[in-house]
C-alpha cells in the first residue's frame, strides 16, 4: 500500500458491499432455481430455494435501507448524482476509453479522486441499479412475500403475476449488472487490484 493510495471505501460501505454481494449471489442462484427449476432436474430443492431466497431478500432489503441512510448522512450519496449537462458525452468518452484508449495506454479520461469515485459510466450504471432496479425489486419482493398487499387485478391481468414478472425482469438486469460489474472491476493495471480495494478500502495510487 502506498501513501498515495486513496481511502475511498469506508468500513460501513465495505461491510454493506460484502453482505449485499453474498445476498445478491444467493438471490440470483435461488431465483434461477425457482424460475427455471424442473421437477425432474431440480437445481436446488424448491423449499430450500424459497427459504434461502426469502432470507437473502429480506437481508438485502434491510441492507439497502441501511445503505440509503448511510449514503444520505455520510455524503457518499453525492457520488451517485450525475451532472446532467454533457452526461451522455462523458459516458461515451468513458466507453470509448474501455474500447480503444485503454488498449493504446491512454490516460484515464476521468481519473479517480476522493470527490469523484466513479467514472461517468460507473455513475450511470450504479445510479440505475441502486436507485431504480434495487428499489423496484425490493418493493415487488415484499409484495410477493405478502401477496395480500398486491392489487388483485391490474388492467385485467393478475396483480401477483405482473409483480412476479417485474421482479424477475429486475432480477435479470441486476444479474447482468453483476456480471459486467465483476468484469469491469478487473480492468486496471492489475486485474485483482480493484477486488482488493473493496476489501481494504484503498484504491491503488497508480490506478487513479
Amino acid at each position: 500500500m502506498s501513501k498515495h493510495d486513496l481511502y475511498l471505501y469506508p468500513v460501513w460501505l465495505r461491510i454493506w458491499h460484502g453482505v449485499n454481494a453474498i445476498c445478491i449471489i444467493l438471490l440470483i442462484v435461488t431465483g434461477i432455481s425457482m424460475q427455471y427449476g424442473n421437477l425432474d432436474y431440480p437445481f436446488l430443492p424448491f423449499k430450500t430455494s424459497v427459504l434461502l431466497h426469502n432470507f437473502a431478500g429480506v437481508t438485502a432489503a434491510i441492507g439497502y435501507a441501511v445503505f440509503l441512510v448511510y449514503n444520505h448522512f455520510s455524503g457518499n450519496g453525492k457520488q451517485y448524482v450525475p451532472n446532467y449537462r454533457g452526461f451522455a458525452g462523458r459516458i461515451s468518452k468513458q466507453g470509448m476509453y474501455y474500447l480503444y484508449g485503454y488498449f493504446k495506454g491512454e490516460p484515464k479520461p476521468f481519473p479517480i479522486t476522493k470527490e469523484n469515485k466513479f467514472n461517468p459510466l460507473q455513475r450511470f450504471s450504479y445510479l440505475t441499479t441502486m436507485y431504480v432496479f434495487v428499489p423496484i425489486i425490493a418493493i415487488t419482493g415484499v409484495g410477493l412475500l405478502y401477496p395480500e398487499l398486491i392489487f388483485t387485478k391490474i388492467f385485467n391481468i393478475g396483480g401477483v403475476q405482473l409483480t412476479a414478472v417485474l421482479h424477475s425482469v429486475m432480477g435479470f438486469f441486476i444479474s447482468l449488472f453483476l456480471i459486467v460489474h465483476l468484469y469491469v472491476a478487473s480492468i486496471g493495471k492489475n486485474p485483482l487490484r480493484n477486488y482488493k480495494s473493496i476489501i481494504n478500502g484503498y484504491h491503488a495510487a497508480d490506478d487513479h
Binding site: Q35, Y36, G158, Q161, A164, V165, F172, L176
Partner: peptide, 26 residues
C-alpha cells in the same frame, strides 16, 4: 396465468429469448 399465478410457472418464452440474447451479447 390469466387469472391465477403459480410461482415458477411464469416463464415466458419471449422474455427468455430476449434475456438470453442480452446475456449472450454481454
Amino acid at each position: 396465468l390469466n387469472e391465477a399465478y403459480v410461482i415458477g410457472a411464469n416463464r415466458n418464452k419471449y422474455f427468455n429469448i430476449i434475456s438470453l440474447l442480452i446475456l449472450g451479447l454481454a
